[in-house]
Design a protein around this nucleic acid. Structure first.
Length: 154
DNA sequence: ATCTAACAAGTGG
DNA sequence: CCACTTGTTAGAT
């Protein structure tokens, strides 16, 4: 499944009705056009992604069992529990799993999240108020956070 | 089985 | 602003 947008093509893979991977085009800088969806898919996964990017409420479809180390699975699980419109720092996540000094390792795991948007790694920010990073480029992270802040959905 | 460089961070000078 | 610490991972030895 894929979604055409003004920022490029988003590719979503599912198996047996469960989301397996979500790939966003990498954006190095801020795009010169506003974000808009050009071609919307109708399956639950696509609708969820589009809703997240446009500030609409949507139900998260079931996720597949993810491939990753025990540490990564642990981190992803904690991230998945962060409510919309809310953020947490890398350091806080590190504390949540009992490794208070592993903030850098947490960031490492975030970058390897195969399901960005589904597992809301965009809600993980730096402790000093900075955005941190994002695997597909910070503009995506910014867009997602702005949508959630202006529209408190679930 | 070890070693090392690379990271989306944090803290302190 | 710079440099030192930090935990985990992937790739090399």
């Amino acid at each position: 499944m894929h979604i055409e947008t003004t920022w490029g093509t988003i590719r979503i893979e599912s198996a047996a009705g469960r989301a397996v991977s979500c790939r966003l085009p990498f954006l190095d800088g801020s795009p010169d056009v506003p974000f808009a969806v050009k071609n919307a898919g109708h399956d639950p996964a696509s609708r969820f992604v589009i809703a997240s990017l446009t500030g609409h409420p949507a139900e998260r479809p079931p996720l597949a069992i993810l491939d990753g180390t025990a540490f990564q699975q642990q981190i992803w699980q904690v991230i998945a529990a962060i409510p919309a419109g809310h953020t947490q720092t890398y350091s806080e996540l590190a504390q949540a799993i009992g490794r208070p000094r592993a903030c850098r390792a947490v960031a490492n795991a975030c970058g390897k999240n195969p399901l960005p948007i589904f597992i809301p790694c965009h809600r993980v920010v730096a402790a000093n108020g900075g955005l941190g990073g994002f695997s597909a480029g910070v503009p995506w992270k910014l867009l997602l956070l702005e949508m959630e802040q202006s529209n408190p959905h679930g």
